[in-house]
Computed example of a mutant assay.
Amino acid sequence: MAENNIDEDNVPAAPEVKAGDEKKVKAARQKKPTSSAKANTGHKAPRAARHTEEEKTAKLAKIADLVGDGSLTLKEAATRMGISENTYYLWKKAASVKPPPLQQPAEIQTESSLSELIDLEQENIRLRKKLVGKLRAENAELRKKLGVE
């Protein structure tokens, strides 16, 4: 043992670890975050869009054509256009949820537009009554032919 020049008295003893303290020891061994890591809150900065809205619309239309022809499946068509199937569904959802365009302010109704509206409502009532009369006559004629009465 003369070959080993280790003094057993100077070697630090390993700390005793209790059965429930294993997680605490592992947590203590983990590297603590640096100041630059603390600045990162875990949220990624928004990425710049890779495709413009026009490109997205064009690709969605092209995929719809390819799938509609029956020549390709949705996954194959999306891959051919350079996007994933998930991206296709995200774009399609975003395209269908677009807010409606801003409407022009409604015109102020004048007396002439109100009188036109009243005339149209009266004509509507007259035409409905005429239609009801024709349908009743037709119904009565069919009942006579069938002998239902």
Rank of each mutant, 00 (worst) to 15 (best):
Q30E: 00
T79D: 15
W91N: 02
G42V: 05
L131F: 08
L66E: 10
K56V: 00
R80W: 06
T34K: 04
L74F: 05
T52L: 02
L135N: 12
R29Y: 08
T79P: 07
V97G: 03
A95T: 04
R126P: 02
G82E: 03
K129I: 06
S84E: 01
K32N: 13
N124M: 14
E85I: 05
Q104C: 02
Y88G: 01
S96F: 05
D21T: 00
R126L: 12
E116G: 11
I63L: 06
V67Y: 07
A19N: 02
M81R: 13
A14I: 08
L127V: 14
E54I: 04
E76T: 15
K98D: 03
P99A: 08
K75S: 14
K38T: 07
L60R: 06
K24W: 00
L90P: 01
R128P: 15
H43I: 09
K129W: 06
L102R: 03
K93S: 04
S35E: 14
A77F: 03
K75H: 15
T87W: 03
N40K: 13
G82V: 02
L72V: 15
K129G: 14
E85G: 02
E53K: 05
P105G: 08
K129D: 13
K56P: 01
I63G: 03
A27H: 00
V67K: 09
K44L: 10
R128I: 11
R136F: 11
E123V: 03
A58K: 13
T73V: 15
K18T: 04
P15N: 09
T52S: 10
G68C: 09
E138I: 05
K134S: 11
I118V: 12
A58I: 07
W91K: 03
V67C: 08
N86C: 02
E141C: 09
Y88C: 02
N40W: 15
A19R: 04
R50P: 00
A140D: 11
K56Y: 00
L72S: 08
N124W: 15
N86R: 07
R136M: 11
G68K: 09
I83K: 04
N86S: 06
E53S: 05
L117D: 13
T87S: 04
K129F: 08
A137I: 08
L90A: 05
Q104S: 10
K98T: 05
G20P: 01
K56G: 01
A77Q: 08
S36A: 15
L120N: 09
A95Y: 05
